[in-house]
Nucleic acid binder design. Structure first.
Ligand SMILES: [Zn+2]
Ligand SMILES: [Zn+2]
Ligand SMILES: [Zn+2]
Ligand SMILES: [Zn+2]
Lengths: 166, 166
DNA sequence: AATTGATATGTTATATTGTAACAAATTAAC
DNA sequence: GTTAATTTGTTACAATATAACATATCAATT
C-alpha cells in the first residue's frame, strides 16, 4: 500500500513561501522591527513545507547557513516570529508551523495529519463563535486559544480509499 | 493586592477525590486491568487539587511512598491512567489533570487559569458540535482533540474586581 | 505446588526540548 | 562619533521524555 505524503498536485507551494516572506517583510517594516537574516532563514526553513517543524530540526538545518547557531539562536528567532504572528506553536507536537494568514489576527484551528504530517490551519468561524459564547458562560477571560485536532486529512484518506488491493 | 489561589468555598474537594478514586477502582475491575498501588498513588497525587501537575513534580511527591521511583515509574503510570481515561494531558503545559467525568467518554475543553493555576474541564457540547461539523467540512477524520484556553478564571477575576485600591 | 505467560516494575542510560546568564557585536538614534 | 537599544555568541544547565533490558509479580494452567 502506497502512502501519500504530499499535498494535492493543485497546491503550488512556492506561492505559500513567497506570500509568507513578502508579508513578513512588509509587516516588519510597518512595525519597525527587524527581520534579520537569522529570523528570515528560520522562517524560510519553517516554510519548507506544511509540516510542523521541531526546534532542533531547525537548528540542524540552519547550521550550514549559520555555523555558530545554538539552541538559543533558534528559540530566539522562534520567539520573535511568534510574537509577530508569523508562526504558530503546535502545542501537542512541541513544534512550529508557518501562519497561513498574516493579514488578519485570528485564532487557529489546527488539523494535524498523523500520516502525511501536514498541518492545516482553518479559521473555523462557527467553532470560534461557539467557543466565545462558552467562555462567556464560564466567565472566563481568554488570553490565548489552542485547538488542535489529530487525525487523517482528506488527501490521505482519499489516497487510502482509492487504493486497490493487489 | 491579594491574589486568589483557591476554588470557591462552596467547593468540597474531598468529594472530587473520592469520586475519582471510587470510579477508577470500579472501572479497573470492570475492565480487568490493575489499579496497582503505584498507579493509585499517582492518581491520588494528581487529585491533590485542580492544578495541572508536572511529571517530575509527581516523581518528587511519590518518592516518600516509592523510594525506587524513577521517571519511567511516573510516565508508565501516567500512560496507564491516560489510556483508561482517568487523566488528561494538558498539551500546552506539559502537565496532567484528573478527569472530572469518568462515566462518559468525552472530548475536553480545558480552561487554564494563569493566576490560580486551576484547570476546569467543560463539556461544551455546542462547541463540540460546531467542531464536528467543521471537521466534516474539511473531510478530516479526527482521532483526538485538544482544546485548551489560557486566561483568567471567573473566581480570579471576581477577586480582582472586588479588590479595593488602598 | 510447579510451570508458564503476561503484566508490571526496577534500573541505567540517554534523547529531546527549552532557559538562564553574561559577553560581544551590531544597529538605530541622537 | 557617542550612546542606548537590540541582536547575537557562548557556556552551562534545567526540564521533559523514552529506550532497553533485567527482575519481579500475578494469574491461570498443569
Ligand atoms: Zn504550501
Ligand atoms: Zn495527511
Ligand atoms: Zn475538587
Ligand atoms: Zn483562577
Amino acid at each position: 500500500m502506497s502512502i501519500s505524503t504530499e499535498l494535492p498536485s493543485t497546491h503550488n507551494h512556492s506561492n505559500c513561501i513567497n506570500a509568507a516572506l513578502t508579508m513578513a517583510t512588509q509587516l516588519c517594516v510597518e512595525r519597525g522591527v527587524q527581520l534579520t537574516s537569522i529570523r528570515q532563514q528560520v522562517l524560510e526553513l519553517i516554510w519548507t513545507n506544511h509540516h510542523a517543524v521541531k526546534a532542533y530540526d531547525l537548528l540542524e538545518r540552519i547550521k550550514p547557513l549559520q555555523s555558530a547557531a545554538k539552541p538559543a539562536t533558534i528559540y530566539r528567532a522562534l520567539d520573535f516570529l511568534m510574537a509577530q504572528g508569523f508562526i504558530h506553536r503546535v502545542e501537542s507536537l512541541n513544534a512550529f508551523i508557518g501562519c497561513c494568514d498574516l493579514k488578519t489576527a485570528h485564532e487557529q484551528l489546527l488539523l494535524i495529519c498523523k500520516q502525511c504530517k501536514n498541518v492545516e490551519e482553518r479559521h473555523a468561524d462557527v467553532v470560534m463563535q461557539a467557543l466565545v459564547q462558552e467562555l462567556q458562560n464560564a466567565n472566563f477571560i481568554a488570553h490565548s486559544k489552542a485547538i488542535e485536532i489529530q487525525g487523517i486529512c482528506e488527501n490521505c484518506s482519499q489516497t487510502l480509499n482509492t487504493e486497490i488491493p493487489a
